[in-house]
Design a protein around this nucleic acid. Sequence first.
RNA 1: GCGGCCAUAGUUCAACGGUAGAACUUCGCGUUGUGGUCGCGACAAUGAGGGUUCGAUUCCCUCUGGUCGCC
Length: 402
Amino acid sequence: MRTDSQRLSFDIEACDGAARAGVLRTAHGEIQTPAFIPLATKGTVRSLESSEVAEIGYELILGNTYHLFVSPGPDRIAAAGGLHGFMGWDRALITDSGGFQVFSLAHGGVADEVKGKGRPGGDRGSVVSIGEEGVHFRSYRDGRALFISPEVSMEVQAKLGSDIALVFDECTPYHADRDYTAGSMERTHRWLDRCLEWHGEHGPAQQAVFGIVQGGIHEDLRRASAQAISEAGVDGIAIGGTLGRDKQEMRGVLELTTPLLPEAAPKHLLGIGDIDDLLTGIGLGLDVFDCAIPTRLARHGTALVPDPENRFRLDLRKAGYEGNRDPIADGCPCSACQHHDRDYLSYLSRAEELTAVRLLCLHNLTYLNELVTHARTAIGAGSFEPYSASILGGAAPWEAVA
RNA sequence: GCGGCCAUAGUUCAACGGUAGAACUUCGCGUUGUGGUCGCGACAAUGAGGGUUCGAUUCCCUCUGGUCGCC
């Protein structure tokens, strides 16, 4: 670890059990933690303008090396002043390395892969080969042959100019056997060394690098990976790979892995964003979380609500909202809740109007930001309880935050 | 008035005389380092009445309702 790096600092300001509240300082501003990170995979938080994302209160968003590499390409973005300049975002940026995409191209999405199903509409089959040097694959746009290696990933991320780069890893599938998972993990560790070597020689001085813990669901592998990443000289640590087939298994992996990491390190849980999972992760001492869920659900007509009985979801495309004059959530400050009722939002979403996507993205991202802000406040007050009714039920987190 | 064509699921269309299928809609389930409108499943139909046939959505007749053409 190099927690004294000039490119990134992390100060823990309060603890409540294992949960902690901190401040992550980057070249593009501070991030209050615990924090949720919206995805701007292709250089935009889908349907929203960068200024709107900032207005909600977000201080850090995630761009994707794989997608931006395929299009519009790193040089075009570099010419626009990096991803910050290209998309008009002046706060902090983290970029995923492309490692997860290698996994999802080869195996389909996490949920489908865990269930043994393919993803018919996906990009499966476009990976040509995964080898020691890197990954050969075909562009999902025009089929041309492309190659990403640890060095290519870091070079692209350097051109994107993100404040935090993630190392290039292989996200091993759930159904891989232990031997494959072990071999994949060891290769990921070798790739980590190559990423750091390239970054040390060519990387932007202000760009931090996070390592990624792999090891699947195997205790000994998670232990080995946690140790290897902790000793590697990175600025922060992300937990990646398959986390199991259900929430209990995921909790087990996180309970095992998190305490093995240096306390002072900022810890990022990759790809997790269900509300109960965020609270679980915060309770275990994780600091930042990114996830497609809030914006993907919005595109498909589902709003996040403080309703644990229904998985915190309100599916506005289901029947029964005709004439419903209630907002999505009482007390929510977002535009959808301030100006519109469920009847109208249900109609808009079923009509597949773009406005519905925008309003539900605004709501879902507002909700998650309020949630983690509330958790931060509770940690400072020594009253953080992941499963307490004050967070999960009623009108919270709106009232508690106001 | 005469002649032609048509009538299948809520809608738009399939189905040699041999188990009536699909798309959209509707309803339900799913989505965790993004699927820019996604995946899975369910409900649901031969206009009415006769006839021929082992068997009719299919062939014949009548009726009803459309539609096009001609006086």
